[in-house]
Design a protein around this nucleic acid. Structure first.
Lengths: 237, 237
DNA sequence: ACAGCAATTATCCGTTTGTATAACAATTAC
DNA sequence: GTAATTGTTATACAAACGGATAATTGCTGT
């Protein structure tokens, strides 16, 4: 949006001394050399934040650099192009979502298969997964995955990863016949209802009572699988 | 993306006669006056197409105008700003999706409540609803609805509209106790599973066999509601 | 035929964008 | 200490962006 004059001066060069007689002595911005890992992480985090706040169009190279505390040129030093940074950011968000649910099982205190599934499902209905910011990032990147094959590959991988986790939990339920095809269908359906509720809850957070989506989600997954899932205590309450 | 030189000459002014002696007589692009309705529709359709093909960033005023067969300035004649055109385009897509499902019930040949619900559900699993282009447009606009209140209102309205339709069909099922709260929960869950399957199918069309999602969707909705839905014949087969 | 209206084109503007490249300086190696 | 390395800043650039305005032309009523 070029229109409104909004001199932000991201370039970092100090305002030129207007009528400076003689020495035009502008100080160069001091800096520290950080390891490659940290710089890359900082830039990716800055990009994600900006996309969350204002969509992909807000994540310009200058804004990202400013947020990360560096100047714009450095981006091209660590990423071949802005697109590559964008892809990296998307991968980071998607993997973070999957890991959040997986980690909910981490404390091996839950051993009962029904309870394990319930905990896994419930993890999707609280932050940081169920969160308007996460949805914004997810949606902002999703459509790009249509035309960008590399991005589409990232999407496919993370989606199938998550669904496989779910399918494994389903197959481990008691009294379940050994029927992989049915496991697959059930996993697709359960994943879909989780996704759908997640989207609605994140897009319209005020349209649902507290814990309503979690309850609906657990009941729906239970109905699809023909079991009764326990409702785990909400750790955020 | 400024980088690559790509002289497209959207401005519509004919190439200047290079060494024209005397009269610099360039012909002005001829045009026809169209009714306001048609022009607006054309511009909206062009914007949707472009978003579908290349995301919101591809839908610039110049590209939209070119696609619609007019020059860029005309957009501001019909819309106060590009944002207003964008909102209109979003509304158009969302309403089109809802109407497609509603219209599937149009031919009043289906009277049985179970069959009506099944037809309504199945409509979401074929074009133009289940379609990568539709998903791209939906996703491209969704994140914008987070920061733009007007856009969010459009999203909320169309979403609730659709869910209400679904809830009405659910409440009309036989042997169903009069329990609006339960109807609401069931509608939310069914809507979610439909949405989720729709997203997966549109985002990864090659990951599912033909008709697989439709079958899974009908079975899952049936399971949630405790009924057995018939599987309507696929009119596209 | 003619005048008036407004739909449409044409052109200009200031800003922002992603990228390229050169100058510089913090660190490392010797 | 001094030189090489390279992370980082600074600056320039062409292109494209959304918006504003003036010039033109197709249409309509008379």
């Amino acid at each position: 949006m070029p229109s409104r004059p909004q001199s932000s001066d991201l370039s970092g060069h100090a305002a030129a001394a207007p009528a400076g007689l003689g020495a035009d002595q502008r100080a160069r911005r001091p800096y520290r050399r950080e390891g490659e890992g940290k710089r890359r992480d900082d830039l990716v985090a800055a990009a994600v934040q900006l996309v969350a706040e204002g969509g992909t169009e807000a994540a310009t190279v200058r804004a990202i650099a400013q947020r990360a505390g560096v100047t714009a040129g450095l981006i091209r030093h660590y990423f071949a192009s802005k697109e590559e940074l964008t892809r990296t950011a998307y991968r980071s968000v998607m993997e973070g979502m999957t890991q959040s649910a997986v980690l909910s099982l981490g404390d091996a205190s839950v051993n009962d298969p029904l309870e394990r599934l319930a905990v896994f499902v419930a993890a999707n209905f609280r932050p940081p997964v169920l969160d308007p910011v996460t949805l914004a990032v997810w949606a902002a990147y999703l459509h790009r995955s249509r035309t960008d094959p590399a991005m589409r590959a990232v999407h496919e991988t993370t989606y199938l990863d998550y669904r496989d986790q779910l399918q494994a939990l389903i197959a481990a339920l008691p009294d379940r016949p050994d029927d992989p095809a049915r496991d697959r269908r059930d996993a697709i359906a359960c994943n879909a209802v989780i996704d759908g509720l997640w989207i609605e809850g994140a897009a319209l957070p005020d349209s649902f009572a507290r814990g309503e989506l979690r309850r609906i989600g657990l009941d729906a997954v239970g109905a699809i699988l023909g079991v009764t899932l326990p409702h785990p205590a909400d750790p955020t309450a």
